[in-house]
Write a protein that binds this DNA or RNA. Structure first.
Lengths: 229, 229
DNA sequence: TCAAAAGTGTTGGCACTACACCCATGT
DNA sequence: ACATGGGTGTAGTGCCAACACTTTTGA
């Protein structure tokens, strides 16, 4: 086997799968969306890809993901977690790239519309165009992780403003999991986690009984290392 | 901020936390052990560290972990999974290293004793010496992951020979989780997973009723990407 | 008064724990 | 016979889905 003239070094990139909730263009139902970036050079020029970039030598992994997020959406994430490191030799033609991928949750209302311009566009997460590299597989895995994790950890609040009703919270779960949930049982289960604190106030002007407002209270931190932002 | 003369590139390493079961030297109870490698150069020269090495340009991540495993224990893993990518800027003095860490389960009987020589030594996982870099934190996280995962996925068989009794399987769980488990309930729960197939034969010569032998049957594969060895 | 969602109560099923009990072997 | 773990049965408990029902608002 001959040593080709190709760069022998392995380069390291950090990419981020960014999720937000927004109504589906057809059905109008709340759905997961994510921003993609159009590639402006080979390989895969013109195709859509996950936002990201090379890891700088003086930059933590999380910091790199946060910078990508800031560049892509103009905001700081409400939730950010490492997803997986992808490193198959052939995942990029010509050169060798290992990507450490993060996933993030943001609030759609906060996304600066200005950024959504030239090379950034939001897509329905379950109906994406063809993606560059192995990014389709990565998104699938991120989706699976999000859907699994929302059922056993309180991350749904990352999609919501500081104060919200239980109906809001339930709507997030329903959108992410693409199901309907029993309001009564959801309420009990949500309150059972001890992560919700009633603000004492109610939401007014609802054409029905005013729902109580809650705030999220951080419980025991997850055992994941290094993510102490 | 001045650019120092230090290498500006980020280097990428793959390390592996290798677990095996072996009796505790004092209590005699089955316990988790893992092999460490003595560092033969700075930084942390003379200290114990996780086995691993730089990622070769033509090598998959899993392959790299497998090579480390082969080098350290002389065998192929029965279970291998990516743990996490550790990349804090200051985790190594002087240079910048991102480590993608795997964890593996092996059978103690298979470990080639010859390898356990010069710079490799096995330690009780819950009673380690001071480790180089952030490796103590890494081991803690690997232990947590193993103990969590053994409760909801059938990985215990990776410590066992192809055929085993339910008592063997239970002993593995008890050793990993450091508890005792009710034999009757453990049996039902284990059989409930539908991953155990009775071989039809029984283990003879036990001074009591001969226990049935089982074989592990792979169920639905996990949704983790890329680990299709 | 009515519609609509908030919030509470009730019931049946399922899973898991604890523990009693019988079974099959070697000594 | 008896000690030892293998293996089965069973009652109690707690969680969860389903769904009936009451409450509180705006229109």
């Amino acid at each position: 086997m001959t040593v080709s003239s190709i760069d022998q070094r392995v380069s390291l990139a950090v990419s981020t799968v960014i999720f937000a909730l927004r109504p589906h263009p057809e059905s109008g139902l709340m759905t997961l969306w994510l921003p993609l970036v159009r590639r402006i050079r080979e390989p895969y020029e013109g195709m859509w890809a996950l936002p990201g970039g090379p890891l700088e030598a003086d930059e933590d992994l999380v910091a790199s993901a946060q910078h990508t997020l800031e560049r892509t959406t103009g905001l700081a994430p409400h939730y950010l977690e490492q997803l997986y490191a992808f490193g198959r030799v052939d995942r990029s033609p010509d050169d060798r790239v290992v990507s450490i991928v993060y996933w993030a949750l943001v609030r759609q209302e906060e996304v600066a519309r200005a950024v959504d311009g030239e090379n950034v566009e939001w897509f329905v997460a379950d109906d994406l165009p063809q993606l560059a590299f192995d990014h389709a597989q990565i998104v699938d895995y991120a989706l699976a992780r999000l859907r699994a994790k929302i059922t056993y950890t309180p991350i749904a609040h990352a999609f919501l403003p500081p104060e919200f009703t239980l109906a809001d919270l339930r709507a997030v779960h329903e959108a992410v999991l693409r199901t309907t949930l029993d309001p009564a049982n959801f309420r009990r289960q949500a309150l059972g986690t001890k992560t919700l604190v009633p603000t004492g106030t109610c939401l007014q002007g609802t054409s029905h009984r005013p729902p109580a407002l809650f705030r999220f209270e951080a419980g025991a931190p997850s055992p994941a290392p290094e993510e102490h932002r």
